[in-house]
């Protein structure tokens, strides 16, 4: 039986820092268009998993396979070129650049003019730049930031900075989007807007999304599947209802 290639697959992924096994035997499969939640108590290793999936850390065991292609030993920018994009738990924008420049900077890898074109402002340069501006405006529009295109990223309010991070991630033309606590510190209205944004992205780009979140109502609402880790070990995975009823998960969160 022919099975669809998963957008992301990890096999026995693990990393140790000295004697500490931060993540151990982490297996996950995400198919295109799926939204999977990754939850766990503080310090469980969720962000470490993200760092493994983006090449920030090199795994000590196992492999990350993206769209059927193993990514061992690759650097972060090569992970991005292969189709992984992410946002950060503590917002990391290019603070001294404008909103639209933040998005355009993420196009860099796909811009094919060279130093000659840039130096002499050839036709190709202008056409490419024009295309980039249009594409960037389209992405900003999806994230509701089109009216703020020319302001400095650092002057945006918190909720919109989060959205700009998502817009920037979208600009890399990814197959897998990793969102690290996108709703952290947001008020209910902002969270609702964010949900809408995430749904639009899924519909429009058909990407696979892996989401870390502490807001349980959000996770239970939008995730199709949930994987729970604690002390670097997967303790449960399945549908939201199953997870909510799983005694090991409840124990991990509330203590035994």
């Amino acid at each position: 039986m022919a099975e669809k290639t998963p957008a992301l697959e990890t096999r026995k992924l693990g990393i140790s820092f000295g004697g500490l096994k931060a993540v151990n035997d982490f297996n996950i499969k995400i198919y295109p268009g799926e939204l999977v939640g990754l939850i766990g108590p503080n310090g469980a290793g969720k962000t470490t998993v993200f760092n493994l999936l983006t090449g920030v850390y090199a795994p000590t065991e196992g492999t990350v396979i993206l769209d059927g292609q193993p990514l061992n030993g690759k650097k972060t920018y090569q992970f991005v070129a292969a189709g992984v994009a992410r946002t950060f738990q503590n917002i990391r924008l290019f603070r001294n650049m404008t909103v639209i420049e933040n998005v355009k900077a993420a196009f860099t890898k796909d811009v094919d003019y060279n130093l000659f074109h840039a130096s002499f402002r050839t036709k190709k340069f202008w056409e490419t730049e024009k295309k980039l501006t249009d594409k960037a405006m389209e992405l900003l529009d999806i994230c509701g930031l089109a009216d703020k295109a020319d302001v400095l990223a650092s002057s945006l309010p918190y909720g919109r900075q989060r959205k700009l991070e998502i817009a920037r991630a979208l600009a890399t033309d990814m197959k897998l989007l990793l969102l690290d606590e996108p709703a952290a510190g947001m008020n209910p209205t902002e969270t609702a807007e964010l949900l809408e944004c995430i749904n639009t992205i899924r519909k429009r780009f058909g990407v696979a999304i892996l989401l870390i979140e502490h807001d349980m109502s959000l996770v239970m609402n939008i995730c199709q599947r949930i994987q729970v880790i604690d002390y670097g070990q997967t303790i449960a995975s399945g549908l939201p209802e199953e997870i909510a009823a799983n005694p090991r998960v409840i124990a991990a969160y509330l203590g035994e």
């Binding site: 983006t54 920030v56 991005v80 924008l93 900077a105 890898k109």
Partner: peptide, 11 residues
């Protein structure tokens, strides 16, 4: 502005 974010944006 942010080297880690730059790398994560494919630069």
């Amino acid at each position: 502005d942010d080297e880690i974010a730059a790398a994560a944006s494919g630069i």
